[in-house]
Design a protein around this nucleic acid. Structure first.
Lengths: 334, 334
DNA sequence: GCCCGGCACGATAGCGTTTACACGACCACC
DNA sequence: GGTGGTCGTGTAAACGCTATCGTGCCGGGC
C-alpha cells in the first residue's frame, strides 16, 4: 500500500540494506550512493516506517516527556521549549502526565512507553517515584528537568539558593514574621519543593532578632490553592507580614486573598513568588525568574545528543542561573 | 529479549493467534480462554509491542494532537482534558505544534504521523491549513476542537454568538466607541477568530446611534501582545471607552497598558475577555467563560469512540454552551 | 444418517525495517 | 605474488505481532 524502502532501493539501483544504511547516513556507505538514495526518497517524499524500524531494532524517532501537570504555567512553558527543539530534530513528542500528587496513580506506563520511545524527559518528578515505575532501572537515555539524581543528566536551577535569597530579601526589608506557601502537605514528591523549603528555613533562621517562620500554607501550585493557603495564614493569631510562595500562580491566589481581606499587597503584606510567570510583571509581583522555556530546550537537546551519540558522554548536571526580580509586591513592613 | 506474545500463548496453552485475539477481546473467543490468557499476561505484566502490532496491521494505541500553541492557557488546558481521557483509555498522546502563524512552517509532519497514530485531534486550526499537509485527505479518525469543517466531527462553541453577546453587553452598558483586540492581522488561520470578529462587528453595527467599531488591535493571543495592541488603540485620536479582547491573556495585557497610562479598568475603559482563564476572576475581568478542559475531554472521548467503533457513526458537531461572566472590568462609561 | 452452519481455535504468511554475515574489489605490505 | 585489511555492497534472517485461511467439533433440520 504505502511506499516501502524496497521501492526506494529498487529505484535507486541498490539493495534494501544499502538504502537503509544510506537513509540513516551510516559512515560506511559511498557518499554518492547516499545522495542518490536520498534523492529518490525525497522525490517520493518517503519516510521510514517508525513501527517497522523500531521492530527491527532501530530507533522510534520519538521521546517521552513525563510531567506531573500540563496546564500549570511552568510545565506548559517547559514543554513548549522541549517541543521546539524536538520538532527541529524531526522527533515526535509523547506526552504523559504522571505523578500529580493529587491524582490517583495508575499502573505506571513507563514499561509500555519504553517500547515506544528512544528516551525520556522527566519534569520535576523524582525519578525514583513509584509513579514512574522503575524508570531508573531502564537502560534508556534520560534527562531530568528541575530535579537531580546521581548519575542521571539533568537541567535544573539551584532551588535552595534561590529560595534562600528570595526569603533573605524579605528579611532584609525588615520583615520578621514570614510565612510560606508550598505545594502539598507532607513530604513533597518534588526535590525542588523540598529544596525551596530548606532555603526558606535557612534564611528565616538567619541570626536576626525575632525573625521566625510561620506556619506553612499549601496551595497545590494553583491559583485557587494559593488563595486558600493565604486565607489560612491570615487566620492565624499573629499573621505574617510577608509570604514566600513557591510558585507565581500561588502568589496570584495569595494576592486575591489579600485583596478580599482588604489588605494591600506590598503595603500590608509583602509577597514573593517563584517562576517568572508572564503575568508577574503585570501584577507587580517580586519573583525568582528562571528561563523556563530555555530550560526545556536545553534538556531536549541534551536528550537528543545522548540518543544519537552512542558514546556515553553523559553531560552531567547543568545548572541554569536564576534572578530575583524585585517589584512592588515586596516592600518594608509598615 | 523481552517477553513476547508467543511466550504468553505457550504458557496459557493456546496458539499465538488465540492469544492475540484474547488480548484484544475479540468476540469470537471463549470467555474462559480470554481470562486464562489475560491472567498469564498480567502475571508477566506483558503488554503487546505497539510497533509490531502496528506493523502487522493493528492499532498503534496512540493519537496525535495538533495544536498551534502549547504554552497559551487555552491550549494547555484543552490538552490537559484530552490527556486525562486518553490516559484512562491507555492511549498515548503524541503532541505536535503546527500552524502557529508566527512560526516558520516546516514540512507538514502529518504524513509521518499517520503511520504512528490511530487518530487526530486538531485544536483550533482550520483542517485545510497547509500547515497540516493534507490531513483532510487522510482516511483516519479525526475530531476538531474549537473549529468546524463539513463532514468532520468537532467540538466547539458558538464563537460568533459569544462574541456578539459580549460586545452587546458593552453596547448595553452605554459604550459607543468600542475597540477590539484580535490575534493577528490579515485573514486569521483560525475559524474561531474569524467568527468572533463577525460577532463583534454585528453587535457594534446594531442600530444604536453613534456606536462604531474602532480600529482593531492585534495581540497574537499573548499578554505582551495584548499590551501592545491596547497601546495602539489608546494612541488613536479618539480612543475607545471599551474593548473586546479575543482572549483573556490579551485582556490581561490590555489591563497592564491601561494601568501604565494611568487609566482605571472598568472606570475609564471597560474590558471584556474571552476564555474564562484561571486568573480572570482574580483580576475582575468580565469574560466569556467556556469549560475548556471539558471540551478537550469530550473531543478525546469522541475520537476514541470513532477509533474503536469501526461503524462510521460520526457523532457530528457538538456545541458546548458558553456563559458571559460579568465582573467589574466592564461598567457603564463615565 | 447426512449435510450444513456456526463456533472456537491453530497454522502460517506477511507487515517494513535493521543487522549479522558474506562477498568481491581494491590497495598495501613484507 | 600471496596475505591481510578496508571499503562498499548484497543476501537473508530476524523483529513481534495480526490477518487469512483452514480445521475439528457440535447441534439441528431434512
Amino acid at each position: 500500500m504505502a511506499i516501502t524502502i524496497r521501492d526506494i532501493a529498487r529505484e535507486a539501483g541498490v539493495s534494501t540494506a544499502t538504502a537503509s544504511r544510506a537513509l540513516r547516513r551510516l559512515h560506511n556507505v559511498d557518499p554518492a550512493t547516499i545522495a542518490r538514495v536520498q534523492a529518490v526518497a525525497d522525490r517520493y517524499s518517503y519516510v521510514v516506517s517508525p513501527a517497522a524500524s523500531r521492530l527491527a531494532g532501530g530507533r522510534t524517532g520519538s521521546v517521552a516527556a513525563l510531567t506531573p501537570y500540563l496546564s500549570r504555567w511552568y510545565f506548559a512553558t517547559v514543554l513548549s521549549g522541549v517541543e521546539q527543539v524536538l520538532q527541529d530534530a524531526e522527533t515526535d513528542l509523547l506526552l504523559l502526565v504522571a505523578g500529580d500528587p493529587g491524582r490517583p496513580a495508575r499502573t505506571p506506563p513507563v514499561r509500555r512507553l519504553s517500547q515506544r520511545v528512544d528516551g525520556f524527559l522527566v519534569i520535576s518528578l523524582d525519578p525514583d517515584s513509584p509513579d514512574l515505575g522503575g524508570l531508573l532501572a531502564l537502560d534508556a537515555p534520560k534527562v531530568l528537568i528541575g530535579t537531580k539524581w546521581p548519575g542521571v543528566p539533568s537541567v535544573s536551577i539551584d532551588d535552595e539558593r534561590a529560595a534562600r535569597l528570595a526569603t533573605q530579601h524579605l528579611v532584609n526589608l525588615g520583615h520578621r514574621r514570614i510565612g510560606m506557601i508550598a505545594g502539598r502537605q507532607g513530604r513533597s514528591p518534588f526535590l525542588a519543593e523540598r529544596a525551596r523549603k530548606r532555603g526558606f528555613e535557612t534564611a528565616v533562621a538567619w541570626p536576626v532578632p525575632d525573625s521566625s517562620a510561620l506556619e506553612c500554607g499549601y496551595g497545590d501550585f494553583t491559583v485557587d490553592g494559593g488563595e486558600t493557603a493565604m486565607n489560612a495564614l491570615l487566620a492565624q493569631p499573629d499573621p505574617p507580614t510577608a509570604v514566600f510562595c513557591m510558585s507565581d500562580e500561588m502568589a496570584f491566589g495569595a494576592m486575591r486573598a489579600l485583596r478580599l481581606h482588604g489588605l494591600a499587597v506590598g503595603t500590608d503584606v509583602s509577597l514573593v513568588g517563584f517562576d517568572g510567570h508572564d503575568l508577574a510583571g503585570m501584577l507587580d509581583l517580586t519573583t525568582v525568574a528562571q528561563p523556563v522555556a530555555r530550560i526545556g530546550a536545553v534538556a531536549a537537546q541534551m536528550l537528543l545528543d545522548q540518543i544519537s551519540d552512542a558514546s556515553e558522554h553523559k553531560q552531567g548536571e547543568v545548572e541554569i542561573p536564576t534572578k530575583l526580580v524585585v517589584r512592588s509586591s515586596s516592600r518594608p513592613p509598615t
